[in-house]
Write a protein that binds this DNA or RNA. Structure first.
Length: 446
RNA sequence: GGGGGGUUACCGAAGCGGUCAAACGGGUCAGACUGUAAAUCUGAUGGCAAUGCCUUCACAGGUUCGAAUCCUGUACCCCCCA
């Protein structure tokens, strides 16, 4: 395997497919090599946690920092109050100030895992655009900022056109029979002014000359560049990364049960790990390039291994490991892997309540009095399955057992007459029930 | 307003007096296979104290030894003619 010679930071970005558009394709690389530059990317505080959709932005900023540039994370406390129309087919609901405040705090807590905020040459910053946008009066904003925006230019932006054009951009517009396009409110129309001004403010305050964002942000980024030229007479730069989509065209980071979050409370490290483990062969190469920091040579050798022996799923494993470590740290990864071993592996036993609790954090459980284990021959397996919610009726439980689909502590239940006794506890008070391949439930005996 | 057709289990759809807990397909669940994939194959699919018992075929009554099946009424849906 040929080892790539030194690759500049920027061509590495290109190689990874992280560059979609730039304001200066020819000169950007040299411009970045010239000296450390401040670069900013914005994050919407629509929830108290970021999700996989924001991961790309975070890792891009991280790469900039590793290359010696200064990343600035802008949390959209102000713009979040308005709602970015880019890529949305419908008007958004406004968040309350309290919600926003909580969300901003949540995001602040998360970005520390990606960027280094400790004082130094290229310490990262996190700012909230509400801090500089809040004080504006409406009239003042119209005079100073609004004056610089020709409406015809605003109307030409894709984010606006698609909403006014009379057809939904959203892929699943099918359910909205009545609503062709929906239009947009003046509020959302004004969104780009706020984001544009952010760029000017960051230039003024931190000398920030580059804004990065997803490809849907191109219109907002160029709006900021235009504004800076008009207000300050400077030429700022912009760069976008492509949207992270799967080969089937759907968005990355969505599961049947909702978004995959970065916070352990919303998506446990195990679930997070599992999400990546299950990445399609067709997508995993892209994900490795764009999201992980594995060197190109290693990624290429994983590609080759995947072609030769797809069944080993080495790529998925590495992807899940790298990202879980990045987001949840080494301890989070350890828990996720341990849980994975148990979920797909051998008998469970000799564990503590606490260990089981961590591993099966996502699994439903039910409490039963401990005496049930001692009554008669013990707790009949059929009752246990129903109690645990793994079967809707005893008939269903019976079928599951007869078909060999029921397990206690990952050991197959032999017959429908099986009874559970205290010596089958996996830990002090917990027994692990499973139906089929992956459906688990805990029984806690108090 | 007049005429006709329909309403069956999670969904679609058979059944038109007993052998109906109800064919068939889809879905779902389990098993085998496998890469925690896809495809395929097998089994299951109202409830229960289970060679039996109980509750289901829009709802309420009725005919009958016996009704998802026949009759009457009610509700909802569809089609045709005005």
């Amino acid at each position: 395997m040929e080892v790539k010679k030194f690759m500049s930071f920027f061509s590495d970005l290109r190689w990874r497919g992280l560059i979609h558009q730039t304001t200066d394709d020819a000169g950007m690389e040299a411009w970045l090599n010239e000296k450390p530059r401040a670069v900013y990317a914005g994050f919407d505080p629509t929830a108290d946690s970021l999700h996989v959709g924001s991961l790309l932005g975070l890792v891009v900023l991280r790469r900039f920092q590793q290359a010696g540039h200064l990343p600035i994370v802008v949390v959209g406390g102000a713009t979040g109050m308005i709602g970015d129309p880019s890529g949305k087919s419908d008007e958004r609901n406004l968040l309350s100030p309290e919600e926003l405040e909580r969300n901003v705090a949540g995001l602040r807590a998360q970005v520390g895992a990606f960027l280094d905020f400790s004082p130094g040459q290229c310490a990262a910053r996190l700012v909230n655009n509400l801090d500089w946008t809040g004080p504006w009066s409406y009239l003042q904003f119209l005079r100073d900022v609004g004056k610089n925006f020709p409406v015809n230019v605003m109307l030409a932006k894709e984010s606006v056109k698609s909403r006014l054009g009379g057809k939904n951009v959203g892929k699943n517009a099918s359910q909205g029979d009545a609503d062709p396009g929906g239009g947009m409110s003046y509020t959302e129309f004004s969104y780009m002014l706020l984001q544009a001004y952010d760029f000017v403010h960051l230039y003024d305050t931190y000398g920030c000359e580059l804004q990065a964002g997803g490809s849907d942000q191109w219109g907002n980024i160029t709006a900021g560049i235009d504004l800076a030229r008009r207000m300050r007479g400077v030429g700022l730069q912009g760069l976008t990364w492509p949207l992270l989509t799967k080969s089937d065209g759907t968005k990355m980071g969505k599961t049947a049960s909702g978004a995959v979050w970065l916070s352990a409370e919303r998506t446990s490290p195990y679930q997070f790990y599992q999400y990546w483990i299950n990445t399609d062969d067709a997508d995993v190469g892209n994900c490795l390039r764009m999201l992980t920091e594995l060197p190109p040579a290693q990624i290429e050798s994983l590609d080759a291994a995947r072609l030769a022996k797809a069944g080993r799923r080495e790529s998925q494993r590495r992807l899940a490991e790298e990202l879980t470590r990045l987001v949840h740290g080494e301890p989070g990864l350890a828990v996720a892997k341990k849980a994975t071993d148990i979920f797909f592996g051998a008998e469970i036993g000799e564990l503590s309540d606490q260990q089981l609790g961590e591993i099966f954090a996502d699994v439903p459980s039910c409490q039963l009095p401990r005496t049930r284990l001692a009554e008669g021959d013990g707790l009949p397996i059929l009752d246990a399955l129903v109690q645990a919610g793994l079967a809707k009726s005893k008939g269903e439980a019976r079928r599951t057992v007869q078909q060999g689909g029921a397990y206690v502590n990952n050991r197959r239940v032999a017959g429908i007459d099986t009874c559970l006794r205290a010596d089958q506890l996996a830990s002090e008070t917990v027994m692990v029930l499973r139906s089929g391949k992956k459906k688990y439930a805990l029984l806690r005996f108090q």
